[in-house]
């Protein structure tokens, strides 16, 4: 099989190599890939929301205990999933570039609110968010443990979502009342 048609882990390796080459050498590709990235979140009644991202949509709701209808996962659960999915993307991407065949891969994430009363506006103390997020990778791959450990460390160190969360991105709110 020629390197140009090599498929590993369901990915076309030559395409990935081309992309890496491009962002290494072409500033305009870097600029375009950096973004901006966008999402538009629309209210769907109750505590339901729908987000539009390029040509994709995701729905949100809250558990029934909050008076909602629990038709979708909560936003904070999507955040956990986004952290995990982004780390998985990095792990698989870097692993594939290094020629590691991944048979299976799963990340279990968990977070506990600092204080739900803060979210409800009952106190300003503490944080309503997750003070920490646990993420455990389960993986079966044709590689030695050391290589897997390095890939996993890089997966969160270089993850867009993980680093956005870990470094606390500056949020710039604005408002228009119609």
């Amino acid at each position: 099989m020629s390197s140009s048609s090599k498929n590993l882990n369901g990915l076309e390796v030559s395409k990935m190599e081309d992309f890496v080459k491009e962002i290494r050498t072409k500033p305009d590709v870097v600029k375009n890939t950096n973004g901006p990235w966008r999402s538009r979140v629309t209210w769907q009644g109750g505590l339901k929301a729908k987000a539009y991202m390029r040509n994709h949509t995701v729905t949100f709701d809250e558990p029934e205990g909050l008076g909602a209808t629990d038709t979708s996962a909560s936003a904070h659960e999507h955040l956990l999933s986004a952290v995990g999915a982004c780390m998985m993307t990095g792990f698989v991407y870097q692993g594939t570039l290094k020629g590691v065949k991944i048979h299976n891969c799963e990340i279990a994430l968990e977070g506990t609110f600092g204080d739900i009363r803060n979210w409800a506006g009952l106190t300003d103390e503490g944080t309503p968010g997750y003070p920490e997020i646990k993420a455990k990778l389960y993986v079966k791959a044709d590689s030695d443990r050391k290589t897997i450990e390095r890939l996993w460390a890089n997966a969160w160190k270089h993850s867009v979502v993980t680093q956005t969360v870990a470094r606390g991105a500056k949020i710039i709110p604005s408002l228009e009342v119609l």
């Binding site: 299976n104 799963e106 389960y138 079966k140």
Partner: peptide, 11 residues
């Protein structure tokens, strides 16, 4: 159950 057993679903 998966969490209690500390196993991945794929295994």
């Amino acid at each position: 159950t998966l969490r209690a057993l500390d196993v991945p679903a794929f295994a």
